[in-house]
Nucleic acid binder design. Structure first.
Length: 709
DNA sequence: CATAGCCGCCTTTTT
DNA sequence: GGCGGCTATG
């Protein structure tokens, strides 16, 4: 059948790779080669005579897409195969069918901060207080609605109380603002595409026939909109192949719906299901730890990881004095590993929140350890980058008022707040865009003559850029940087970092120009809007990788450190009031553990800076769950002898519980015992609380007070 | 109109 | 502890 060598695949993998037509679900644990299955399957399809153009593969990140492109290409010539994230695919679809989608092709894509700006304006225009509707929260709420494909109209209809009615108003105002700005946010990309495919059967059929085979990796993290897009894309043939692992679902907060993968067999009843449970990545030590942890989750289908490797060294679990000692300890261990011949590129440190990278960075600098942060301070979020991008956006999409307002007086050119407001008012009166109003500033009687002249110069500058806006992007970015006065202003302020960053942007634009068949500013802007810093992680460099547990998804390393196993951090405090969220935190830790091939060190610190203050910490409950014996806990070398003496053991209750017994919980209040499961140290208790909530808690953490009756 | 400095607010994870 | 927005001052 094949020119390729599939000898290195197991029989189950091979079965998935060779699957011909119809729906296929690959349920696969970590390290079982599920991404490999997709890669080989693309090659196998092409080998069997399928036109590469008729295959579409969806990955979770741009980085993963890039890797898959390279890997498939090394197996088989596959030009024309579409490999990208859902978002990139949607941009292509929306650009091509923009008329049917009711938008223009040159739309801007709003990042989170631009969304928030827009939300703020919407709240103001609705005459509501940002105090009652925090913009960030409101943005989240609207994002959730969009991920569920609930548009502002239908939300309005179902709104009942004051809060939801107000939210509906903000939502619809926000959509209006986006439309006026000819802009889409991240969620719109998915929602507009999903709705377009739903309502337009011609486009649906056309695309379904274009993509005869659809393959989706990390299916457990798709949201409803993505599910809808996938379903419609395969309407003509049902050749859908998805891979995923419910235990690695870590994006529920972003709308990911684990039910998509759990219900796959209901959605496609003739689906072939292949399970891959062998693990080729980690040592048995690491896997048994991961197994023990994930088994605590109630809401899951049991599954074990079958190791194929021989045992290696034990997993270390270390208690450090504070975050600085922890960082120093890790730096020293890395130096030790390095001396034993391990390259730094095979080492990674994972943490729960981005800000946890700081003490690590300090220690690494001090110890001269080269490192790279995978998505730290986001490159595209820097002020100077956003400024220059705003100039570029205007050239492509003059309707983009957010971009225009950003740069009209950046750098300062004497067009201040009052002038801007007069023009805004004029634009509103005449029902024209802000940029149109700028062009007609001569007619705005409220403006002083000097303002009119300054505005005219500004408009003429932008128009001269527009005239040069065709062809390669890099020269244009450079020209805008110089002619806009941004360069001069940064030089004057001595901000060399900012100038460096812009040069980096120009370099990346040059790379884009080189790779693109037909470079255009529009295409470039729409691409980089979907780019995250995780994508710029350079595996070729011999540096230690620092990243959040979320960013670690899909990666693997020989040597891994996971830090900050403390209550409130992992699991994060914002997840503590909800069992589902706690289970997601557990999956997040599970993902982290299962990235490690050989060496794994898990640590926590007794003290850590929290909101600017040094706080005493409590060890994470996850440590107990993986069976850490705190009496025999490994101590850090810098520690005093009595170092871990005052570890706070979890609260213990000797008493047995009987059904219907009355108990009190610190947080949830009074409740009655529904069920008590005696499992020694792992005993759980299910309680129906007075407010109706039913919770299952680990007894040793529940801290229950027994009420005598 | 520009700038500096202060106050108050938020603070998980990311396409 | 960091950032955005507001205010007072030049």
């Amino acid at each position: 059948m094949s020119r390729h060598c599939y000898d290195n695949l197991t029989s189950s993998q091979l079965q998935a790779v060779r699957h011909k037509e119809g729906p296929l679900l690959v349920i696969a644990g970590p390290g079982s080669g599920k991404t490999r299955v997709i890669t080989y399957r693309i090659a196998a399809l092409i080998d069997s005579g399928v036109n590469p153009r008729n295959i579409c593969a969806i990955t979770f990140t741009n980085k993963a897409a890039e890797e898959m492109r390279q890997r498939t290409f090394s197996l088989v010539p596959n030009s024309g195969t579409h490999i990208s994230t859902f978002h990139s695919l949607c941009v292509r679809i929306l650009r091509r069918y923009h008329e049917q989608a009711g938008i223009r092709a040159n739309f801007s894509i709003y990042s989170e901060s631009e969304q928030t700006t827009c939300i703020k304006n919407a709240i103001k225009e609705c005459e509501l207080e940002t105090g009652n509707f925090p913009p960030a929260r409101t943005r989240e709420a609207i994002s959730t609605l969009k991920n569920k494909l609930i548009d502002s109209e239908s939300y309005k209809e179902q709104a009942e109380d004051f809060f939801t009615k107000a939210l509906a108003k903000i939502y619809s105002r926000y959509q209006h603002l986006l439309q006026v700005n000819n802009s889409l946010d991240f969620d719109d990309l998915l929602m507009k595409t999903a709705l377009l495919l739903e309502k337009d059967s011609d486009i649906r059929k056309e695309l379904s026939n274009r993509f005869r085979f659809l393959l989706i990796d990390e299916y457990q993290d798709t949201n409803h909109a993505q599910y809808c897009i996938a379903k419609n894309l395969v309407c003509e043939h049902n050749n859908i192949c998805v891979t995923g692992d419910p235990d690695q679902s870590i994006y529920r907060w972003r709308g990911a719906d684990i039910r998509n993968i759990l219900a796959f067999e209901k959605d496609w009843p003739d689906a072939v299901v292949i399970k891959l449970e062998e693990n080729f990545r980690s040592t048995p030590n690491i896997l048994s730890l991961a197994d023990r942890l994930i088994a605590v989750n109630q809401n899951r289908k049991p599954k074990t990881l079958i190791p194929t490797k021989k045992n290696g060294s034990d997993v270390s679990i270390i208690c450090f004095d504070d975050h600085n000692v922890e960082s120093q300890g890790i730096a020293e261990k890395i130096i030790e590993l390095s001396k034993s011949g391990i390259s730094l590129r095979n080492i990674a440190v994972f943490y729960r929140i981005n800000s946890a990278s700081r003490p690590l960075e300090e220690a690494f600098i001090k110890n001269k350890i080269p490192y790279q942060i995978v998505r730290g301070v986001e490159f595209y979020n820097r002020k100077e980058i956003r400024d220059i991008l705003a100039y570029l956006k205007i050239l492509v999409n003059p309707q983009d008022e957010v971009a225009c307002l950003r740069i009209i007086n950046t750098p300062a050119r004497g067009i201040g707040k009052s002038s801007t407001e007069r023009i805004l008012a004029y634009a509103a009166r005449k029902k024209i865009s802000f940029f149109e109003a700028l062009k007609k500033s001569a007619d705005v009687s409220e403006l002083s003559n000097s303002s009119k002249i300054k505005i005219k110069v500004f408009v003429e500058m932008l128009e001269s850029f527009t005239a040069a806006a065709n062809g390669p992007v890099a020269p244009l970015v450079e020209r805008v940087f110089v002619d806009s006065g941004l360069e001069a202003s940064l030089k004057k302020g001595g901000d060399n970092d900012a100038i460096e960053n812009i040069n980096e942007l120009i370099n990346s634009a040059a790379v884009y120009d080189g790779q693109s068949q037909e470079p255009s500013l529009l295409d470039y802007l729409q691409q980089i809007a979907l780019f995250s810093d995780a994508d710029s992680y350079d595996t070729a460099q011999d540096k230690v990788a620092l990243m959040t547990l979320h960013a670690a998804k899909g990666l693997e390393f020989d040597n891994i450190f996971i830090i900050g196993l403390e209550d409130g951090l992992l699991p994060h405090e914002r997840s503590s009031d909800n069992d589902d969220e706690l289970e997601e935190e557990r999956r997040l830790f599970f993902v982290g553990i299962t990235r490690a091939r050989q060496f794994l060190q898990i640590s926590y610190a007794k003290y850590r800076i929290f909101r600017g203050q040094l706080m005493r910490t409590v060890p994470s409950q996850f440590l107990y769950e993986i069976g850490v014996d705190f009496g025999k806990l490994q101590k850090s070398e810098t520690a005093e002898d009595d170092y871990c003496d005052d570890i706070e053991e979890p609260y213990r209750i000797e008493a047995q519980f009987t059904s219907n017994q009355l108990v009190r919980h610190k947080k949830f209040g009074l409740g009655r015992v529904k069920q008590f499961l005696e499992m020694g140290d792992n005993s759980t208790i299910t309680i129906r609380f007075d407010d109706g909530r039913i919770k299952t808690l680990m007894l040793k953490y529940a801290n229950l007070e027994v009420i005598d009756t």
